[in-house]
Amino acid sequence: MTSMLEVKTIRKLSPNEKIPYDLLLLADPSVAVINTYLPSAEVYVLEKQEQIIAVYVLAKNGDTVEIKNIAVNPVWQGKGIGKLLLQDASLRARISGYRRICIGTGNSSIAQLSLYQRQGFEIAAIIRNYFTLHYAEPIYENGIQCKHMILLEKLLN
């Protein structure tokens, strides 16, 4: 974990900066779908040695803010960066006055479901057949077809 000390702070991507699609595509395999939520959302990045190694996207909806995408470069996975991003998103949402933060993931995303719940998110709903209806190609993770979106939420006090 000592390498985390070298990581710069998480910052909002400025409008003139290139969108890190390479990372966003790790969490969402469709550029078309990503492009539907980027215009109304804020992109936050984490850098190490002037290279973006992680990203998350926040979209506001009423009294809730949603993490639309969260991804860590595979080289940096398993080092606590996903946890750090979730904590940063929750803190930003709380400071901005939001009462709830939510995130959706696939039924086949075992590691993500575990991480989100360990960070205080609870399963709130299941959107059946979301991924089969919104994505042209089938998605498989952990030997399981990703069909349903699991929505998780956390209350921000």
Rank of each mutant, 00 (worst) to 15 (best):
M1H: 08
M1D: 10
T2R: 11
S3G: 06
S3N: 11
M4V: 09
L5M: 10
L5A: 09
E6S: 11
V7M: 11
K8R: 12
K8E: 15
T9G: 15
T9S: 15
R11P: 04
S14N: 09
N16C: 01
E17R: 02
K18W: 00
K18T: 10
I19C: 03
I19S: 02
D22G: 10
D22Y: 13
D22A: 13
L23P: 03
L24S: 02
A27E: 04
S30A: 09
S30Q: 07
V31Q: 14
A32I: 09
A32Q: 14
I34Q: 11
T36K: 13
T36Y: 07
P39K: 05
P39A: 08
S40C: 05
S40E: 14
V43L: 04
V43N: 07
V45R: 02
L46S: 07
E50I: 00
Q51S: 15
V55I: 01
V55N: 07
V55H: 02
Y56P: 00
Y56V: 02
V57N: 04
L58C: 02
K60Y: 13
N61Y: 06
G62S: 02
D63A: 12
E66S: 11
I67F: 00
K68E: 14
I70N: 03
I70V: 15
V72N: 06
N73P: 00
N73K: 06
P74T: 07
P74F: 07
V75M: 07
I81Y: 11
K83C: 00
K83L: 00
L86Q: 03
L86Y: 08
D88H: 15
S90M: 12
S90D: 07
R92Y: 02
R92P: 00
R92L: 09
I95Q: 11
I95M: 05
Y98C: 03
R99I: 00
R99D: 09
R99A: 11
R100E: 14
I101C: 05
I101H: 01
I101F: 05
T105C: 14
G106T: 03
N107C: 07
S108K: 06
S108N: 14
S109C: 12
Q112W: 04
Q117A: 10
E122Q: 13
I123Y: 00
A124W: 06
A125E: 14
I126A: 10
I126K: 13
I127S: 11
R128S: 15
N129H: 13
T132L: 08
H134W: 05
Y135K: 09
A136E: 14
E137Q: 15
E141Y: 08
C146L: 13
M149Q: 14
I150C: 08
L151A: 12
E153D: 11
E153M: 06
K154W: 01
